[in-house]
Write a protein that binds this DNA or RNA. Structure first.
Ligand SMILES: NC(=O)c1ccc[n+]([C@@H]2O[C@H](COP(=O)([O-])OP(=O)(O)OC[C@H]3O[C@@H](n4cnc5c(N)ncnc54)[C@H](O)[C@@H]3O)[C@@H](O)[C@H]2O)c1
Ligand SMILES: NC(=O)c1ccc[n+]([C@@H]2O[C@H](COP(=O)([O-])OP(=O)(O)OC[C@H]3O[C@@H](n4cnc5c(N)ncnc54)[C@H](O)[C@@H]3O)[C@@H](O)[C@H]2O)c1
Lengths: 224, 224
DNA sequence: TTAACTATGTGAAAAGGTTCACAAAAGTAT
DNA sequence: ATACTTTTGTGAACCTTTTCACATAGTTAA
């Protein structure tokens, strides 16, 4: 019921996988990329755990939901485990992504190389500002948001990033949903409604600053 | 041990408050601001829960960690509860914030009005690019990162936002820590080390895209 | 080939977070 | 005033996630 509550997407076999586990897989993937560059052949759950500030048991448990990737007495093969993580996360392929709202944050995201490196290709941009529409931004022409539904379908977009003001975000989302999009990353601070079969993730930077503020004001013991 | 693991900062009285609860307080705060603008005098845990897609019990439990703010039979006074949330989160005051790395994402953050509205005042900017140093960005002169430690102390900075390339983030963090800063929001995708008395939060947008990717590939049942 | 290590994979236990359920307290209507 | 309704605040129950602990299986060294 709560987006933070025991939230699980899907099931590998009959098992349900928690949001925390999926986020840790992302972290393992990035760390494994680093280890690969460092020339390491294998890594133990202990080593990986140390880098991620986790327990070795947590690492093994996370991986065990998806298979047996290690060798007892030795550890996990770095490159292979990296590929496994990519496969599980679905980033061993290209994703066709559109971004709506080419303003301050939107522009920053469009040029972000890390997204492309992980297979997220921002190939369509939309805005409602006449001065921006038709202009070229990092090689992509900005389209008029008025044809959003049609253009998303035409370009066979699979994911959408929303970077418009909070006041209009729901209208945009409604059109995005109509276009059949099932995955949305939203940067507008608003409680947006989507049907049950659409995945919506919210990125809220104020929340993290507020967490820091809370921690400072209450001068609180750091976990571990 | 894990940054996602039962992570709790501090204690109100003897109670430990979970990260989830603090994040929900942020959401309550934002929603209460909206309700206040809508002219509502009181709100019940049921109403608030509906807006946040939580259970009423969750709302009441979260609030109960910090006090009794409601009136039985009536609900919570909107404006007062908003102020209470602000006070608990520590955003009923101004925070002196510095941002390091005025590039794509850094520039976007500097101009973001929502931060200032919640008391986070970005009053110092740092970069190592000679073309940027000395120039004015949204009314703030960009300082040379070489004097980082000295300048952070001089400006009595309390929080730092890091938006430099991942390769240099650890060096920057080390200087920031030396300057006595106890709260850092980091946008670089890297496993950064800080002493135990420094709060470090990481904002990782790739992670959310990867979550969506996982959800799509495994075509998974949405929670609830 | 054997002995001594090392490290995985996983049930079970422990810890943490959410929801239930209800007494208590206040509002509302008559 | 009294009965009835509404809604809070909270221990207890419930559910999820993490950690423990160990059997198992592979490596390494002599
Ligand atoms: N700037 C930041 O650092 C930051 C950080 C976190 C969240 N956000 C959020 O991201 C969103 C965008 O912020 P920003 O700072 O980039 O604002 P911005 O005003 O710079 O950009 C918004 C863009 O959306 C476009 N737009 C407006 N209405 C539109 C519509 N109906 N259809 C299509 N495009 C439309 C505007 O033309 C503009 O290009 C906001 O919701 C903001 O709260 C921004
Ligand atoms: N652009 C995005 O949308 C985005 C999204 C998520 C995360 N990030 C992360 O944020 C960071 C910055 O990304 P960006 O896209 O803004 O990159 P960028 O190259 O546009 O900006 C980096 C800025 O840091 C400055 N810099 C470099 N070395 C420095 C040093 N030693 N001291 C001080 N300043 C220094 C550069 O001069 C530049 O202004 C990166 O770690 C990136 O991975 C970016």
């Amino acid at each position: 019921m709560n987006s933070n509550t025991y939230s699980t997407v899907g099931s590998f076999g009959k098992k349900r996988i928690s949001e925390s586990t999926i986020h840790r897989l992302s972290r393992y993937y990035r760390t494994l990329s680093v280890l690969e560059k460092e020339g390491l052949q294998t890594v133990s759950s202990k080593d990986l755990a140390k880098r991620e500030k986790l327990t070795p048991a947590q690492v093994r448990k996370d991986l065990s939901f998806f298979g047996s990737f290690g060798t007892r007495g030795l550890g996990y093969p770095v490159t292979e485990l990296k590929h496994q993580m990519a496969s599980i996360l679905g980033i061993d392929r290209l994703w066709r992504v559109a971004l709506i709202g080419v303003g301050n944050i939107g522009s920053a995201l469009v040029g972000y190389k890390e997204f492309a490196r992980q297979g997220f290709n921002i190939i369509k941009l939309f805005d409602n500002d006449q001065r921006k529409i038709g202009s070229n931004h990092k090689g992509i022409t900005i389209s008029d948001v008025r044809n959003l539904e049609r253009d998303l379908k035409e370009a066979r977009i699979e994911m959408v990033i929303i970077a418009v003001p909070a006041t209009v975000a729901q209208y945009i989302i409604d059109d995005v949903v109509k276009a059949g999009i099932k995955a949305i990353l939203n940067f507008a601070p608003a409680n947006l409604k989507v049907p049950n079969d659409v995945f919506l993730r919210n990125e809220n930077m104020s929340m993290e600053l507020e967490y820091l503020s809370f921690a400072l004001v209450n001068n609180h013991a750091q976990k571990k």
